[in-house]
Lab assay of single mutants.
Amino acid sequence: TIDEIIKALEQAVKDNKPIQVGNYTVTSADEAEKLAKKLKKEY
Rank of each mutant, 00 (worst) to 15 (best):
K37V: 11
Q11G: 06
L9G: 02
E33A: 14
A36D: 01
E10H: 05
P18Q: 04
Q20M: 09
E42G: 07
E4N: 09
Y43H: 13
E4S: 10
D3R: 08
Y24H: 09
I6E: 00
K40Q: 10
V26K: 00
D30S: 11
T1A: 11
K14P: 02
A32M: 06
Y24S: 04
S28A: 00
I5Q: 02
K17W: 15
K40F: 10
Y24D: 02
D30M: 11
T1D: 11
K40I: 13
K14H: 11
E10Q: 10
K17V: 12
I5A: 03
K34S: 11
L35W: 03
E42R: 05
I19R: 01
I2V: 08
L35Q: 01
Y43W: 09
V26E: 03
K34D: 11
G22D: 06
L35K: 00
E4D: 12
V21F: 08
A32P: 00
A36R: 08
K17M: 14
I2R: 04
K17D: 01
L9C: 04
L9D: 02
D3I: 11
E33V: 08
K7H: 12
D15P: 02
E10L: 12
D30E: 15
T27I: 10
G22A: 05
I6F: 06
I2F: 12
A32S: 01
V21M: 06
K7A: 14
K7R: 13
I5N: 00
K7T: 06
K38S: 08
D3E: 13
K14F: 14
I2S: 02
Q11N: 05
K37Y: 06
Y24E: 06
Q11C: 03
T1S: 14
I6R: 03
D30I: 13
T1V: 06
K40H: 10
I19Q: 03
D15H: 06
T1R: 08
Y24Q: 06
A8M: 13
G22H: 07
E33N: 07
Y43P: 07
L39F: 04
I19M: 08
K41N: 15
A29T: 07
Y43N: 14
S28G: 14
A36Q: 05
I19L: 11
I19Y: 05
K40R: 13
I19S: 01
Y24F: 12
I6P: 02
I6M: 06
T1H: 09
Y43F: 13
A12F: 15
D30K: 13
T25C: 15
K38G: 03
N16K: 08
K38L: 13
Q20K: 15
A8Q: 10
V26N: 01
K7S: 10
D15V: 08
Q11T: 05
T27A: 11
I19P: 02
I6T: 01
A12R: 01
K37S: 12
N23Y: 08
Y43Q: 11
Q11M: 09
I19A: 08
K14I: 15
P18V: 09
A29H: 04
Q11S: 07
T25Q: 10
L39G: 01
V26I: 14
K34M: 13
I2P: 05
Y43M: 13
T25D: 05
K34I: 10
D15K: 03
T27Y: 13
A12K: 02
N16H: 08
I2E: 02
L35A: 02
T1W: 15
A12Q: 03
Y43L: 13
K7N: 04
K38R: 09
E4V: 06
E33F: 09
Q11I: 05
I19K: 03
K38I: 08
I5L: 10
L35I: 06
E31N: 01
I19V: 13
A36T: 04
T27F: 14
